[in-house]
């Protein structure tokens, strides 16, 4: 299989900050908004270079979403920044009416998604945001896997017309996607071809999927690892081409299995290529306090859990 090296651990939110700073230089209509979390979202570089294009709204996320929608009227390209929980559930109706239904070109950039937010606990660990956002007509949903991909995605969505939900996280994680890897919205990334099983992973679970594939390769199991960074629109073609070879699939996400990437894939498989699928994700539960790695272990979001799921998927295929 194709091997990936950890280029050095970095947080995905810093990739967002770097992407935003880069957009500041290239896209004069990009406006950043934040609800009292500048440091957490790593927005300092953009703000320092372009203070006139930054809107601090205070702790008022509903107002932030409305202001972002209004900024598009006049041709601005607004990027909102706050935690994933406050970017989605807290402001769902504002996004639904003022952004999605109104067809506004707002980029909703959400950090601290999922369990890996860590010690702050379940109040802040949203595991339902992908589901909430993918259900909104016209909304593009992206969950990036490392620093380089988050930076590339941040830059790419500036040229995407229409509302986007960009989901990333808090902790430092391996940075392994090549810096020059182009980010194409809606196009899955083939990380490592294989023949026995497809592992379709998004976000922080992508590195875990690669680790699992290495272990399984040593056992003679060939895994095809695909990074589904864009959950909506889903790259059905890539998924179907892969399961046509492998005949089974494991979906991996740091999100509730209800409503997440796995269910989107299951719908595609049910319609076009029914085959065994196993789901790595949280099992309809809230999170809790703990370190990111403790939480990922406890809730079964790691390479070991993916390995087990792969064996199960293959055994179901062969049954």
């Amino acid at each position: 299989m194709k091997k990936y090296t950890d280029l050095g651990k970095k947080d995905t939110r810093s990739g967002f900050g770097a992407g935003l700073a880069s957009l500041g230089k290239t896209h004069p209509n990009v406006v950043a908004l934040c609800a009292d979390l500048i440091g957490s979202l790593k927005m300092e570089a953009f703000i320092e270079a372009h203070p006139e294009r930054f809107v601090q709204v205070g702790i008022a996320e509903a107002n932030m979403m409305g202001i972002a929608a209004g900024l598009t009227i006049g041709g601005e390209n607004p990027f909102t920044g706050t935690f994933a929980n406050f970017s989605t559930g807290r402001v769902y109706d504002q996004i639904r009416q003022s952004i999605a239904y109104s067809g506004k070109n707002v980029k909703i950039c959400a950090s601290h998604a999922g369990l890996t937010l860590g010690e702050d606990g379940a109040t802040h660990q949203i595991l339902e945001d992908i589901g909430l956002m993918k259900m909104l007509p016209g909304m593009t949903v992206i969950n990036t896997c490392d620093y380089n991909q988050t930076k590339a995605a941040t830059i790419a969505i500036a040229d995407h017309q229409g509302p986007v939900y960009l989901r990333f996280g808090r902790p430092v994680v391996p940075n392994f996607i090549p810096e020059d890897q182009p980010f194409v919205v809606g196009k899955a990334l083939m990380l490592s071809p294989g023949s026995d099983v497809t592992i379709a992973a998004t976000g922080h679970l992508v590195w875990e999927a690669l680790q699992a594939a290495e272990v399984l390769e040593a056992q003679g199991i060939s895994c095809e690892v695909i990074n589904i960074h864009t959950i909506k629109p889903l790259d059905e073609e890539a998924i179907l081409a892969s399961v046509a070879k492998t005949g089974c699939l494991v979906s991996c996400e740091e999100h509730n299995v209800l409503g997440g990437l796995g269910e989107s894939i299951a719908r595609t498989l049910a319609q076009h290529h029914p085959c065994p699928q196993e789901f790595i994700g949280t099992q309809d539960t809230f999170g809790e306090s703990g370190t990111p790695s403790q939480l990922m272990d406890k809730y079964g979001l790691n390479a070991a859990a993916i390995e087990k799921a792969v064996l199960k998927a293959i055994s179901r295929k062969n049954a």
Binding site: M65, G66, I67, A69, G70, L71, T72
Partner: peptide
């Protein structure tokens, strides 16, 4: 009102 404010900022 929030949307109007955004348009005013624009």
């Amino acid at each position: 009102l929030s949307v109007a404010i955004g348009a005013a900022l624009a």
